[in-house]
Simulated scan of single mutants.
Amino acid sequence: MAHSLHVPTLHRRPSHDVQSATSLRSSPHDDRRSRMRKYTIAMSIRTVCLILLVVIPDWWRYVFGVGAVILPYIAVVLANVGSSGAAEPVRPGVVPPLAIEQRRP
């Protein structure tokens, strides 16, 4: 008599449990680079405000003066925020059942 072989089926996780590389935080190098770019842009605008403070007469001088005083604070806050990272923490998925289970009599 021929015995039929029992071929176990492989169990796969549902697609919603699979982790995505796009849900990971950015690398420290990319994060630092992004923060430095924001800081440099804000401080460049401050430099322009300082130059315009000396060049522009009348009440506009006060607008550029306020910009030159407030922009360093804004630049530091932007630089310290860091990346937003993942929307939610990456957690390990559900452990799939064993593909080969022990036979029960």
Rank of each mutant, 00 (worst) to 15 (best):
D17P: 02
P92G: 06
S23G: 15
V7L: 15
H11S: 13
R32Y: 10
M43E: 06
C49N: 02
P8Q: 02
P105N: 06
H16I: 07
P8V: 00
V18G: 04
V95F: 05
A87P: 04
P72E: 04
K38G: 11
V94L: 08
G93Q: 01
A68G: 10
G65E: 06
P89A: 11
T9R: 03
V90E: 00
A68H: 06
P14H: 12
R32G: 14
L53F: 11
R46I: 02
Y39F: 14
L52Y: 02
Q102Y: 10
V7Q: 15
P89N: 09
M1E: 12
I74R: 06
A42T: 03
W60I: 01
T9P: 05
S34F: 11
P8W: 03
V69C: 10
D17S: 12
R46S: 07
L5I: 11
S34Q: 11
R33L: 15
I74H: 08
I45T: 11
S15T: 10
R46E: 14
V81S: 10
S4L: 10
N80C: 15
A21W: 10
S20I: 05
L50C: 12
R61W: 07
A79G: 03
P28T: 11
R33N: 14
V63N: 05
Q19Y: 01
L71C: 02
R35S: 15
A87Q: 04
R103H: 08
S27K: 00
H11L: 09
M36L: 15
W59R: 08
D58G: 14
W59Y: 09
I70R: 05
G93M: 00
V77M: 09
C49Q: 00
E101V: 05
L78W: 03
I41G: 03
G82V: 02
H16K: 10
F64Q: 05
V77E: 09
D58C: 14
I70D: 07
P96V: 01
I74D: 06
R61I: 04
F64L: 12
S34I: 05
A79F: 09
G65S: 11
T40N: 03
P57S: 01
S23T: 12
Y39T: 04
L52K: 03
H29M: 07
V81G: 07
P96C: 02
R91S: 11
H16S: 14
V63C: 09
S15R: 10
A99N: 15
S34K: 10
H29V: 12
P14R: 12
A86F: 02
R32P: 00
P57G: 00
S44W: 00
V54G: 13
P28M: 09
M36K: 11
L71D: 00
S26M: 09
A75S: 00
G65C: 12
N80T: 12
S20G: 05
A42S: 08
G85T: 01
V66K: 04
V54W: 13
A42E: 02
